[in-house]
Each structure stands twice: as structure tokens, then as C-alpha cells.
Amino acid sequence: MQSFDLTLVAGPPGVGKTTWISQFLANPSRPLFYLCPCAQDAVDFARIGYCFPWVSIISDDQAADVLADLPDQAQVFIELGFHMDLGSPLLVALPGRRIAIVPPSLDSSEWHNWADEVIPSPNQQVSGELASASGKLPTIWRSPLTGQVFDPPSLDEVLIELTGGAYGQVTRLKGIFELPDGQAFYVDFVEGLPGIEYTELKLPRWLEGRPDRFSGLEIVGHNLEQKTIAQALLTCCLADDVLLQYQRQYQQLQLEDETVAAETEPGVVA
């Protein structure tokens, strides 16, 4: 009989669910699978694929077939958004270990009641207010950005405004953005933690036209001015002629760097 391990991970936004899962995805010695239900256009869905290309990403429409025919020794991680009903028949029927990652300040919640194991969030300053029975759940707003390339200073300014409350209370922000030098960055913000974190994704530089790989923004918060946010993002996007000019410059710089590297290789006569 084939055997596999299935782990469901749940908790409030910003507690580090994807980070916790990622530590296991870094080892490709077993067949690895990742599913985040109802989030096919989510940033983390793409980030997992970019950072761990050996992981099989399961879409919603594939889930039933894939889970019914897993290879031997497979390890499956299912990340559950904070808005999902943990008592739904579909989730209840799934076998496997249930992990809840919660703020250290949160003593009891639906996640505590659901989980086999409760892990305190490494993000010590994340608030437990979201799980309050009297609290209103925040809104999730997602914007696909595939094909858009951003002016870095303008993007920085908008992200600072966003996380500073200019367009509503932002409790969580994450995004993948393409820059004119061909690099793609993952951007991460959690309310209560200092600053905005930028991480370069180890992807080939895109210097020929508009990128057709996924990029996008995901915001969790209250009273979000979605139209205003969308308009602010558009002001940071480069027009075709400007993007072409940038790409030509970076192509030339890349060519010069490659020439210098070739000339300094052992055995190459300048």
C-alpha cells in the first residue's frame, strides 16, 4: 500500500504559514506537493513555484485527482487561508496532521480547537485581534500585475503609503513585482513588524519585452480603497517606450559584464 504524509496548516494572516511550510519544501528528497485552496491567483502560489521548482503545485481543479493518486512517500502541504471554514465537510474529511500557527498573544480561537498541534508564530508582534469573536474579518484584495514593470522609486513610495494607512488599514501585504533591470522581487509586510521586506527571486532576468511570468499584489486589511490603490499602482508602471529604453541599457550592461568575465577567465588571452 502506498503511503504519504498530508499536513494542513491554518492561522491568521501574517503569522508565517508559508514560511513554516517552506522549510520542508527545501528538501526535494521526497515527492512534494503544495495546495492553497481558493487562491490560484495568490502571490504565495507563484512564490512557492518560483523558489521550489521541484514542488508540484496543485490547482483547485486538479486537487481531487492528485490527492487520490499520490506517489509513494509523497509529502503534501495544504495551506488554508484565514477566511476558510475549518469545519467544512471537505476539510473535515481530509486525513493528516493539522497545524495551527497563531500569535503568541492568542490563547484560544477556532484554530486552537481545530488543530492537532499549535505552534506560536515566530512573528512575535503579530496581533491576535483577528481571531476575536467580536472582530470583523478583514478583506482580501488581489490584483494581477503580470506584464507590468515598475519604476522602483515610484513603487517604493506607493508601498510606503499603502502600509502607512493612506488607502485603508493594511494588516498584510505581499507581492511579486518586476523591475526594469529584469529582476523580480517578493515584497512582504506584516502590521506590527518593522518595515517592508524585499527579497530578490532567483529567476532569469527578463530583458525582452513585457514579462509573461506571474506577478501580482495581495493585500489584507480593513476599509481598503481598492480603486485608489489600483490607480496608484498604475502610476508606477512603465510605458512601452520607457521600458524598451531601460531594457536596451541593461542588455548593454549585461553584454559588457559577460565580455569582462570572459576576458578574465583562466587561459583567455586579452
Rank of each mutant, 00 (worst) to 15 (best):
A46V: 03
G49R: 00
I99N: 14
G49M: 00
I99P: 15
Q75P: 04
W114M: 05
A63R: 09
L80W: 10
A93G: 09
Q73M: 09
D65N: 06
W114Q: 05
Q75A: 11
D44L: 00
F82D: 15
L86V: 10
H83W: 12
H83A: 09
D72C: 11
S109E: 06
S56G: 02
P53H: 00
V92W: 02
A74M: 03
H112G: 07
G49W: 00
A64I: 01
A115P: 08
V76K: 12
S108V: 07
A63C: 07
E79W: 14
N113K: 09
L67F: 06
L70D: 05
S59D: 10
P95K: 14
V92H: 08
A93E: 06
D72M: 09
S108K: 14
Q62E: 08
I78Q: 08
I48Q: 03
A63G: 11
P103Q: 10
N113P: 05
S105K: 04
E79C: 13
A115F: 02
I78M: 13
G49I: 01
D107H: 12
A74P: 11
A100C: 13
I57W: 02
L106I: 10
D61R: 01
G96T: 12
H112E: 05
I101Y: 07
A68H: 05
D44N: 10
L67S: 06
L91W: 12
Q62S: 01
L106R: 13
V43P: 02
P104K: 08
P53S: 00
A63I: 03
P95R: 14
S56N: 07
C51A: 06
Y50S: 06
V92L: 10
L70V: 08
Q73T: 04
D44C: 03
D60A: 07
F77T: 07
F77A: 11
L86Y: 12
D61C: 04
R98F: 06
I58D: 03
D72A: 12
S105N: 04
E79H: 13
Q62C: 03
I57R: 02
H83M: 08
I78A: 09
P53D: 02
D60H: 03
P103R: 11
S109R: 04
L94I: 05
C51W: 02
V55R: 07
I58T: 03
E110W: 01
P104H: 06
S105I: 01
D72Q: 10
P104E: 03
L86K: 15
R98G: 11
E79Y: 13
L94W: 13
P71H: 07
P104C: 09
V55G: 04
I78G: 10
P95Q: 13
D107R: 10
L67I: 01
D85I: 09
A64K: 01
W54K: 11
L86R: 15
D60L: 05
G87D: 10
F45A: 01
V66A: 02
V43Q: 06
A63F: 04
D116S: 08
P95H: 13
D85C: 14
H112D: 02
V43S: 03
D65I: 02
P103N: 13
